[in-house]
């Protein structure tokens, strides 16, 4: 079975790129805090950029790990811009002062996302295990605004914030944020270990999304985005996604610090190495990627009327909890 849409794409639209797993934080939900991986030299990183440019990958987004810790971040970003790539990153904001904001501007970043998990500073600091992190994150938003860089806010929805997400939207408005991403909770790394404490029940997810989609519909002054395929099963959901189901392996891939490619940061299955393997061979023929693109309904997904739209929900979550890419998303309420 072929997927005409996937077949059409000659390469991912986005590479989510972890330059290093090093981080100055130890967040309760982090997928990567306990990961270790060899890192590449700047020359090797530039070779990766050359390959991405050759395959016309339009976007790279640095994550991690904290990208601002990486000594070559700006040199690499500058180089990537020169090769025609659109560069963005996600940061905890701790190191994003005036000087960093100006460097970000000079390097031509398209946008920078700052992670803020609660509008209550003490709660955010506790979640991030770093006193003062809320103030530094908010200050980062202000420095980005002052430097003329488009900012976004990334908030992982969990038990600490799902009933107060409107406060996060207000916080975003106060600090000239262009777009808020309300990320779904992933059960990977520490998120897996702490899921009993942090994750919502399927019914709570449903209630959250119904409310959040209503707020999104009514909001005109702020872009609100979700990245959770499970919401496609909600009645009346009419978002026009580029693909159905998880976008991982269809629109995006993840790069580990050593150049290994995985479908996304939350699925630790290496499909190839960007420096060592033929990219097109991996992109078109990887058994893992093709399995993700052509999922088969299993368990309660079999016969479910929503499957055609959600394709089983988040593949990463299914894999983390069952070891099977095609099992139903554990967040599904149906």
């Amino acid at each position: 079975m072929t997927n005409p849409l996937t077949e059409q794409f000659s390469a991912p639209l986005t590479f989510n790129w972890t330059l290093s797993y090093s981080c100055n934080f130890a967040c309760s939900h982090c997928y990567s805090r306990e990961e270790q991986c060899a890192e590449l030299t700047l020359a090797e990183l530039k070779q990766i950029v050359d390959r991405l440019a050759r395959h016309q990958v339009p976007f790279i987004n640095f994550g991690g790990g904290e990208p601002l810790i990486h000594k070559d971040l700006f040199a690499l970003s500058d180089y990537a811009r020169q090769q025609g790539l659109n560069v963005s990153m996600n940061s905890n904001g701790w190191l994003l002062d005036k000087q960093a904001a100006e460097q970000i501007k000079a390097c031509g970043f398209r946008s920078v996302g700052i992670s803020i998990d609660s509008a209550d500073g003490a709660l955010h600091d506790d979640f991030r295990n770093r006193p003062g992190s809320f103030d530094r994150a908010v200050n980062a938003l202000d420095e980005l605004a002052a430097a003329g860089v488009r900012s976004t806010m990334s908030s992982v929805i969990s038990r600490i914030n799902y009933q107060n997400f409107n406060d996060l939207l207000d916080l975003a408005r106060e600090h000239q944020v262009a777009q808020v991403y309300l990320h779904n909770f992933k059960c990977s790394g520490r998120g897996f270990k702490n899921r009993q404490e942090l994750d919502l029940t399927p019914e709570e997810w449903k209630d959250f999304y119904l409310e959040a989609l209503k707020v999104k519909e009514e909001t005109r002054d702020l872009l609100i985005s979700f990245d959770d395929p499970v919401i496609a099963s909600l009645p009346g959901y009419k978002e026009n996604s580029l693909v159905k189901g998880s976008s991982c392996g269809k629109l995006s891939l993840h790069l580990r610090p050593n150049g290994d490619m995985t479908p996304c940061g939350f699925i630790p299955l290496v499909v190839g190495n960007i420096l060592q393997d033929d990219f097109e061979e991996v992109w078109y023929n990887s058994p893992v990627l093709n399995k993700m693109r052509n999922k088969e309904a299993k368990g309660k997904c079999q016969g479910c009327g929503a499957y055609e739209d959600c394709l089983g929900g988040c593949t990463a979550r299914a894999f983390a909890t069952t070891g099977d890419l095609s099992e139903p998303d554990p967040h599904c309420w149906k």
Binding site: E7, Q8, F9, S10, Q56, P58, F59, N86
Partner: peptide, 9 residues
């Protein structure tokens, strides 16, 4: 506007 020719297609 970000764009790309889908050469294979």
């Amino acid at each position: 506007i970000v764009w790309r020719v889908e050469k294979r297609r």
